[in-house]
Design a protein around this nucleic acid. Structure first.
Length: 417
RNA sequence: GUGAAUGUAGCUCAAUCGGUAAGAGCGCUGGACUGUGGCUCCAGAGGUUGGGGGUUCAAUUCCCCUCAUUCACCCCA
């Protein structure tokens, strides 16, 4: 790096240069377009919340809350946290603004930046972008299926191929209790053979042991939540499968799929892609029927997901995004320069993207600039044109140029045909 | 937080066993073409070799520390 670089971006953050910004804009446009088709409404949330919100909803025993959050005290001594995920804020907004009165069933989406203090690696940043969709008020498996479908639609439209959908059900509070009893019993026998992390999790968050990669083989005959589902949960899960089949979505039931956040109930799902390396989940989500009541609202079922946009970017086919402007004005002397500036602003008022040299560069340099900017047209003004009250209008692709009166309407006419 | 690999120009990469002026391509600026871009040719600018310390007559090269990046663990988006 050059020695004139005194500062660099903070670890785990990403600078987005103009060429990258074009791709990001496209991703956002596709999300907005699809979410409109699915009738989800946009929500924009604050960058930080009271730490307590995440302690309660994300869960105090989760890694996200314990190890990864950026928390700080403000001058009033309040403990605040940069949001590590979107769902808690969505639910908070839903409750705080009495959004229930807008209807029993509502669908939202957001495109936001999230923050987690982890060691960066492929597909894992400290500031990352995610979009998410949340549907509040429906306990139907139809809603879960629609959510999954919407995410797949978006990725499809962005040209992302090879997404694998994994689903599972971890039951409701009631049947999960049953499962946990048996699961713990099973683990108790093998406790000594489990990895260090799992031994710790055994007391803090036993559910997480289910997708431990180290000891997968040891769990091969472990009880799974699916076998302990109550009748309602079982019916719900088979309905989900039915709806997914109907939508022709390819999925795999992964009986060990568990998610790292506390609020999930019943349906959980993940979108996996093998090219992502260790962070192979492009996104994931599930049902969180208990969360709204838990946060002080009236009992309401809900379901949602979050997608890692940075990971989506990694999976998108690399296409060059070209920038181009309509018109670049080239002037050949000082007097023409003044006419050029006047014309430039007229062109812009008329909706053209247009630019002009302001460094007093040579004609050759101005043309080179026009070329670099991918200008469709150049307008050339010099002494001769000035005398005749005309400009030269040159089509860069063909190199052909034509004399046109110095008049915005005349220029517009010429450009249109 | 733990581990491994890698740090040379804006970018991608060279530089023999440690050897004295650190190179190339792309990009950038200018010229050949004094009023016309792309292609070609020519020239120029741009580096405390990530930073600090050590070994040595001599360090881009070897050693230590540090920082950063990448990948993996972990965790998840």
């Amino acid at each position: 790096m050059g020695s004139d670089v005194e500062f660099s971006n903070v670890k785990g953050t990403r600078d987005i240069l103009p060429e990258d910004a074009l791709v990001w804009r496209r991703i956002e446009e596709v999300i907005r377009k699809k979410m409109r088709e699915y009738n989800y409404q946009e929500l924009q949330m604050p960058t930080f919340e009271y730490t307590e919100l995440f302690r309660k909803s994300t869960g105090k025993d989760t890694d996200v809350f314990q190890k990864e959050m950026y928390t700080f005290k403000d001058k009033g001594g309040r403990s605040l946290a940069l949001k590590p995920e979107g769902t808690p804020s969505v639910v908070r907004m839903y409750l705080q603004h009495g959004m229930k009165s807008r209807g029993v069933f509502q669908k939202f989406y957001y495109i936001e930046r999230m923050f987690r203090q982890e060691k960066p690696q492929k597909g894992r940043l400290r500031e990352f972008r995610s979009f998410g969709a949340e549907a509040i008020g429906s306990k139907s498996a139809l809603t879960d299926a629609e959510l999954i479908k919407s995410a797949l639609d978006i990725m499809d439209e962005l040209g992302i191929k090879g997404i694998e959908v994994k689903i599972n059900s971890i039951g409701c509070q009631k049947c999960r209790k049953e499962f946990m009893k048996e699961f713990k019993k099973f683990l108790q026998q093998k406790l000594d053979s489990l990895c260090e992390d799992c031994q710790r999790r055994f007391t803090t968050n036993p559910m997480r042991i289910m997708d431990c990669k180290v000891d997968k083989r040891k769990l091969i005959d472990a009880p799974v939540p699916l076998d302990y589902l109550c009748d309602d949960c079982r019916r719900h899960f088979s309905e989900l499968e039915k709806h997914l089949d109907y939508l022709e979505i390819d999925y795999k039931v992964d009986t060990f799929l568990a998610r790292g956040l506390d609020y999930y109930t019943r349906t959980v799902f993940e979108f996996i892609h093998s090219e992502l390396g260790a962070q192979d989940a492009v996104g994931g989500g599930g049902r969180y029927d208990g969360l709204i009541k838990f946060l002080g609202g009236k009992d309401a079922p809900a379901s949602g997901y979050a997608m890692g946009m940075d990971r989506m970017l990694l999976l998108m086919p690399k296409v060059k995004e070209y920038r181009e402007i309509d018109i670049y004005i080239v002037t050949l002397d000082v007097k023409s320069d003044i006419i050029g500036w006047e014309l430039l602003y007229k062109l812009r008022e008329n909706g053209f993207s247009a630019d002009k040299d302001c460094l007093g560069r040579s004609p050759k340099a101005q043309f080179r600039e026009a070329d670099r900017q991918n200008a469709t047209w150049t307008i050339i003004i010099g002494g001769e044109e000035r005398k005749k009250g005309v400009v030269q209008l040159k089509r860069m692709k063909t190199g052909k140029q034509k004399e046109v009166p110095l008049d915005i309407e005349a220029i517009k006419r010429e450009i249109k045909c």
